[in-house]
Structure formats: structure tokens, C-alpha cells
Design a binder for these strands. Structure first.
Lengths: 159, 159
DNA sequence: CGACACTAGATTGTGCACAATCGAAATGTC
DNA sequence: GACATTTCGATTGTGCACAATCTAGTGTCG
């Protein structure tokens, strides 16, 4: 309050940046959780959480493309997650009989992740998941796609 | 593999929906974490995590607008969080001396959250946070705004 | 008044995200 | 061949998100 006497109407200026900024990171935060919440009941029928579902998607795609079965590191690169997150998650998937975890023979540091028969079979039931979610979505598919493409720019770019 | 004999080229059809779907929820997931990661070092100077920063933003805005100080329920509605998340988070903010938590006299079920002097003062330092982040962002501000507006549509709509 | 439903917040338990650290295995260098 | 460095995954500890449950305070209606 002072300098040039008089234009400052508010003792604590509005600070639009703190607002705008709030709303981008916050919108991202909320939207992500709302989408996960929409997935939850559908994925519950498969006995999967959303992060587990993402891991399974990678494994199913990998298997379909006949790629070498992935190591934990390769999964981590694809999903942008580290071993501190993946290790317990993969152990739970193993506990449910959906994957196996076996050390590489030539390099014992590496751990290969492979679908079991049950894990591969689960893909058929997962086929319904995106269909159900798109049906529930009040947002046109075209917008979802454009949104996805905009979001992709955040991967690795920002930091 | 059968009926109508012959068009199926792939024993496991590509299932573009499982891919597309993957990429929207996944892009949301990754983008959110990357943004939080970009905030982390900046917020660390204030001793705040990103969710704590969001709570403080609401409290600062509330104070500036001279609104009644919020209850836990009001904070939860604004941030789309429940007491299971907010209670421990608010206790940590209280432990750091940034807020106080006091029961309403007329209805002892309600808990008012109020900024301490230190909590209010922190706002000055937080002023730099969005500036720093926007400077780091390789994405034009206009795109950030349009992205924010698209993301807003997910709030409450989907489920 | 007393039985009832309702509300706000706290608690408990599970799971994810991530920084920091560790140990073992592999690789590189002299 | 001995030793430093790097790599991979596991472990530990903190914090967030959320479902389910609990407790206490409030309101209502007979």
C-alpha cells in the first residue's frame, strides 16, 4: 500500500497467478482421481486396481506384439514408475496368480515379468472395461482424444 | 477363430479400444505426476507437499475473500477430498504451526480450520511458486489454460 | 422424554507414489 | 586380477487417496 498513492484497492492483491496456477494443477489432480473412481467398480470385477490394470495393459500389449517379456525396468520406463512402486504391486499380481517373476539367467540383476495363463485369460474380460467407461463418459470421444494428445506433452517435457 | 471362416488375421485382435483407453487414463495419470514432480523442489523450500499447498491455497483465498473460515467439510468439498485424507494432512499442517483446528461452539461436530500468523505469512513466499513453474513450463500459457478448461469437465461429471 | 435417523470428523486398513538407501551382480579400468 | 563404478531390484519411511467403520453431537417425531 503506498507508492503512487491510491490504485491499490485491496490490501492483499488478488494475485491471479496463484489462482490460475491453482486451477491447472488442481484440475489435473481432480480429473485424474475422478477417472480412477469411474474405473474402480468396473475393475473391481476383475479384482484389479487402476495401477494394476495399467501394468496388465502393458503386459497384454507386449504379449500381442510378441516382444520379449519385459523386465521390471522396462515396465518402469513404460509406465514412468520406479521399483519402489512396482515391486510391491507386482508381488500382489503374482500373489493373485496373474504373473510370474523370474530372474534372468544371464544377468541375475534383471527380473522378467511374464503373464500366467490366468493373467493372459483375464484380457478377454478386460475387453469390456474401456467400452463400459466410454459409454459412461458424458464427454465426446473426439474430445477425449484431443485431451489425451495435449496431456502427452507433459511426459518428460516439464522436468 | 471360426464363424465366417477366415477374416481373423490375428489370433488376439488388436483391440484398439484397450489401447486408446489405456492412453487417455494413462496420460492423465502421468501428466499429473510429472506436474507434481515439477512442483516438488519449489514447494520443498516452503516445507509443503503439493496436496498441502492446495489446502493452503484454499485457505489463503478464503481469507482474502473474507469468507467465514472453513470447516473440514467445506475444505473437503472444495478440494474433492474426504476426512480420511484431510484429517491427517491438517494435523501435519497444524504440527508445522501453519493452521489451528478448533471445534465450533454451537455445533461441536464441526471443526474450523484457521490460518495462524505464520500460515498467513507463508503466502508471500508462495507468491513465487506459480511464477517459477510457469517459467519452467515449455508449454505456452494459452495451452495450459485451454487444458485446464477441458479438465474441468471431469469434475463431478463422470461419476 | 426417549428411540430413531442423520451428520461431521476421526480411525483403520489397503494400496499407490516416491525419495533415499542398500546389496548383489555386472561392467569398466588400470 | 584387483578395484571402482554402474546397474537392477528390493527395502524403508513418509505422505496421499479412499473405502469402511466408528463415535459423538444434533435433530426429529411420537
Amino acid at each position: 500500500m503506498a507508492q503512487h498513492a491510491g490504485v491499490t484497492l485491496d490490501p492483499q492483491p488478488t494475485d491471479a497467478l496463484l489462482e490460475l496456477d491453482n486451477q491447472l494443477c488442481f484440475a489435473l489432480h481432480v480429473a485424474g482421481r475422478q477417472v480412477v473412481k469411474a474405473y474402480r467398480p468396473v475393475l473391481a470385477e476383475l479384482g484389479l486396481t487402476h495401477p494394476q490394470y495399467l501394468v496388465m495393459l502393458v503386459l497384454w500389449a507386449w504379449a500381442r506384439e510378441r516382444k520379449e517379456r519385459p523386465t521390471v525396468r522396462a515396465l518402469g520406463e513404460r509406465l514412468v514408475l520406479d521399483s519402489g512402486t512396482l515391486t510391491p504391486l507386482l508381488k500382489r499380481l503374482q500373489g493373485r496368480g496373474l504373473i510370474t517373476r523370474t530372474r534372468a539367467r544371464d544377468d541375475e540383476r534383471e527380473l522378467f515379468v511374464r503373464l500366467t495363463r490366468a493373467g493372459a485369460a483375464l484380457r478377454k474380460r478386460a475387453h469390456e472395461v474401456p467400452i463400459t467407461l466410454l459409454q459412461q463418459s458424458p464427454i465426446p470421444v473426439g474430445e477425449l482424444i484431443s485431451l489425451r494428445d495435449q496431456l502427452r506433452r507433459f511426459r518428460g517435457n516439464w522436468c
